[in-house]
């Protein structure tokens, strides 16, 4: 059944949709190189990198923005 007015009462419920399956290249983050600039956290369109530099691969679409914007090249895009 469609809810009255098609209202969605479950905030943030799009997490049911695991967009990680869209990915062809995978960002791999080297915490030893990281200087905690927060660029990857700020710029990820999915909001799937935490401030602690954990990448949630369930949602990462592999866009490569994080790798591109990392000032110390701590993130590499790898196949798979």
């Amino acid at each position: 059944m469609t809810a009255v007015g098609a209202t969605v009462k479950e905030p943030g419920s799009s997490v049911k949709n695991k967009t990680g399956s869209w990915r062809t290249f995978k960002p791999v983050l080297d915490k030893d190189k990281c200087i905690d600039c927060e660029n990857c956290f700020l710029f990820c369109p999915e909001g799937c990198i935490t401030k602690e530099n954990e990448i949630d691969y369930d949602y990462c679409k592999g866009c490569g923005i994080c790798a591109e914007e990392c000032p110390v090249k701590a993130i590499k895009m790898e196949r798979g």
Binding site: P11, G12, S13, S14, V15, K16, N17, K18, T19, W22, R23, E38, F41, L42, F43, C44, P45, E46, G47, C48, T50, K51, D56, D58, Y59, K61, G62, C63, G64, I65
Partner: peptide
């Protein structure tokens, strides 16, 4: 910058979408 996200993942934006970055 607050860690908390108010725009959840799983949205259907293109990979690399700038609009969702702005909203986030």
């Amino acid at each position: 910058i607050p860690e908390q996200e108010f725009l959840a993942a799983g949205h259907r934006g293109c990979a690399g979408c700038g609009a969702t970055i702005g909203a986030r």
